[in-house]
């Protein structure tokens, strides 16, 4: 089922691109870009939701509400949900596109692994999933050579007896750049900032280590994917180059795209009936006149 729906079409698409460009390395890069292009609407939706959530969480009034109910999680959650509902924010808005993309990424990974069949047994399995319109006898096995690399082996650029893992270094660097320039603005004492910083430190090393261990074909995919992701975010104007290039002007911080009407006074007035607390008060209505950032 998984193979038929995901891996087989991906594998055949990758083989088709390989036949067209006659180079497996370039085919991996193009294949990654094609998949990124197909999943662009999901990425854009995910980013939009993430931005709305970030804006909401950075809102001082929202924070005040969270602080107020810090000892009453149930109540805090209830209030949170009301705000989400009122502002049209889906709490799963950023998770769902990620969840949908996850099988695509796994399928992409598996199809690259399949095409790089290096043993007769792997070739038998590959031959089985190739669609009849692709002449399997002429295209298999795939030539794994790309630049100095053997895409079926972990990549090393040999200078004498020293093997330099160029791709692994590039993957490490691009993952770091990706994490850094796409890092959302957070406050120093923010919990999410701590998490984000930890991830920013861990991810490049983890990806670099995998690129060092995996076959070069997969490392090439990681690299292409990193660059494509930064490109996607840059196209959406969400890349802050100043975080790695000090001479570049910092990205203008977006003003909250949602305006919280939550007010302590309102809350106090409406304490007996918290359900009404999110109802816009006259004061809140006045606040709504503030300029709003386009969502």
């Amino acid at each position: 089922m998984w193979d038929t729906i995901i891996v087989q079409p991906f594998t055949n698409l990758l083989l088709l691109i390989t036949i067209l460009v006659k180079n497996f390395g370039i085919a991996i890069i193009l294949f990654t870009l094609v998949i990124k292009l197909i999943t662009y609407p999901l990425t854009a939706k995910q980013l939009k939701s993430t931005m709305a959530m970030q804006d909401l969480q950075n809102d001082p009034k929202y924070k005040k509400m969270m602080a107020k109910y810090k000892d009453n999680r149930e109540k805090a959650a209830e209030e949170q949900m009301k705000i989400y509902k009122e502002k049209g924010i889906s709490p799963f808005g950023s998770c769902l596109p990620t969840l949908i993309q996850f099988p695509i990424i796994i399928g992409l990974y598996q199809s690259i692994m399949r095409v790089m069949a290096s043993t007769p047994l792997e070739l038998v399995k590959l031959e089985r999933i190739v669609y009849p319109f692709l002449d399997v006898n002429k295209i298999l096995p795939i030539q794994n050579r790309f630049l100095w690399m053997d895409l079926g082996q972990p990549e090393r650029l040999w200078i004498g007896t020293i093997g330099i893992p160029v791709l692994a270094i590039l993957v490490l660097a691009t993952t770091f750049i990706q994490s850094k320039v796409m890092q959302p603005p957070t406050q120093a004492n923010d919990q999410s900032a701590a998490m984000s910083n930890s991830m920013m430190m861990m991810m490049p090393f983890m990806m670099g280590w995998m690129a060092y261990q995996f076959s070069a074909g997969l490392a090439l995919y990681f690299l292409a994917s990193n660059i494509a992701t930064v490109g996607q975010y840059a196209a959406m104007g969400r890349v802050d180059w100043s975080k790695i290039l000090p001479w570049v002007k910092p990205l203008e911080q977006p003003k909250p795209s949602v305006v919280i009407d939550y007010d302590e006074e309102d809350e106090q007035e409406e304490e007996p009936e918290p359900v009404k607390s999110v109802k816009p008060s006259a004061r809140a209505s006045a606040k709504r006149q503030r300029p709003k950032m386009k969502k």
Binding site: S118, T119, P120, L121, E122, K125, W209, M210, Q213, F214, S215, L218
Partner: peptide
């Protein structure tokens, strides 16, 4: 990495 670092081919 366990998937890739150990046995890297099926035969």
């Amino acid at each position: 990495t366990g998937c890739a670092a150990g046995v890297r081919a099926e035969s």
